[in-house]
Nucleic acid binder design. Structure first.
Lengths: 252, 252
DNA sequence: TCAATAGTGTCTCTCAGACAATATGCG
DNA sequence: CGCATATTGTCTGAGAGACACTATTGA
């Protein structure tokens, strides 16, 4: 045993949040502007230090509330009545933060579109940005004008992993409803899938599929006309959490 | 901002390994006996402290080599020529280690059956144990006699998450071949699926499915008789990493 | 009236599961 | 030969994708 555990090296542990929502038919991420070095003035994912008596998910939940006012559901894994929160991955490259050795546990949050852009507490400056633009910038792929600067630290990678997790997870779970208000129509749910995947889906096959999956959607009885055209039935999220068979993403 | 980052609380960061293999048609996990308190004498997952200048995956890889002599592939995500290693999840409940605040990043390793039980270095005492027995013990579900003691710390939960990840991931990826030697037969691959899922699969449909998925299996030309009966073709793992359509686990 | 969206029905192709039949080693 | 395993083939039902058609609102 060539290493003495009693002299373990001290680390700082943080949580970072990938908060996703669908606004104007586009997948958007919450980013905050950094007020101090390093990366001063750059956009970054919201997050902060884990306190010494605080669990990781509690810390993520606290940061979420501080930055957005959002509460996630109290249920162990569910998301009824609030945003969905789950652990994403942990990032701990030795030089990812130039100040000190920091290990960051990233969490993924799926939230419905929020009324105010951001009503956060200690967020100096925060906004919803289209995820595509942020990812292009972090890849160095941005177009000429209005070039988006890459996210601070390794947050571009974290965002990419979070977006990919969301894209993959709505295939085989009912999580897409976490992007919707408590009552929603089949068309609104379809636009969520289209925004997250960036593809067009056949409205007729989609309707047949989601209404035919037991426990996915529960009709509330009400109807509404939010997009013009024939009024649509309103639904709530059902009890099912896994979709079997899954909603398959179309091939490239 | 009611919290001063300059006084961040120090954490210890460890990696823990869920090392899975298939032995005698059963899914088995590598466990080591603890030589010191807390939980002295109990079985635990292998693992250790992350060093000061060391990345998380490097630390996991180092611990794997120290405990088993296994090397995982150098490729970023692949597993050709070695074990497969991927990050599983991070566990950081405030009291999970009574000595101090420890955040543990768990990694999942899928390895072929090893010749010697364990040829490890600093492993005082290590063995392969059937995952089912370990999980039953951690659930308090063990039968009367030869009761297996629960794993130390929260390692029962970590093992359960790792086993579930493996069960789920072989559905839609070619990772099941990581449990096989470099050359293997369709029957051997089928027994891997049966051991991991704990179900019986139809040999004929399984054969049609895996040989019909492009890029999953590459014939090497050789044949062998390892189980009696007609000789079987030998295959290597193909280039495909994702299985489309997936190998669906039968319902309960 | 038209435009737009919601919802139903029909056809075809792929694929999973059940299972018959044949191939080829070993004792 | 008898047994065990490998491999191929056939049938059937579930479900996805393409797309015609009807329903119901507002402009």
């Amino acid at each position: 045993m060539p290493y003495d555990p009693s002299t373990f090296p001290p680390f700082a542990v943080t949580v970072d949040l990938v908060v996703l929502t669908v606004r104007k038919d586009a997948l958007c991420s919450l980013v905050v502007r950094r007020g101090e070095p390093p990366y001063q003035g750059r956009w970054a994912l919201p997050g902060g230090f884990v306190r010494d008596d605080e669990g990781l998910e509690v810390a993520a939940s606290r940061e979420l509330a501080e930055e957005t006012g959002l509460l996630h559901s109290q249920a162990t894994e569910g998301h009824r009545g609030g945003a969905h929160l789950e652990q994403l991955a942990t990032y701990g490259a030795p030089q990812r933060d130039p100040r000190m050795r920091v290990v960051s546990v990233a969490y993924l949050v799926l939230a419905p579109d929020l009324p105010s852009p951001v009503a956060g507490g200690d967020a100096r400056s925060a906004r919803w940005a289209p995820s595509d633009a942020l990812l292009d910038a972090s890849e160095g792929l941005g177009r000429d004008a209005e070039q988006q600067a890459p996210l601070a630290f390794d947050h571009g990678q974290i965002l990419q992993d979070g977006v990919e997790r969301a894209r993959s997870k709505i295939e085989y779970s009912s999580l897409a409803t976490a992007f919707c208000p408590p009552e929603f129509t089949v068309g609104e749910l379809r636009r969520v899938y289209e925004a997250v995947w960036g593809v067009a889906l056949d409205p007729r096959n989609f309707h047949r599929k989601v209404t035919g999956t037991p426990g996915f959607l529960m009709p509330t009885g009400g109807t509404t006309t939010r997009q013009g055209g024939r009024p649509a039935q309103l639904f709530r999220t059902g009890e099912a959490t896994v979709l079997n068979p899954p909603m398959l993403r179309p091939e490239a």
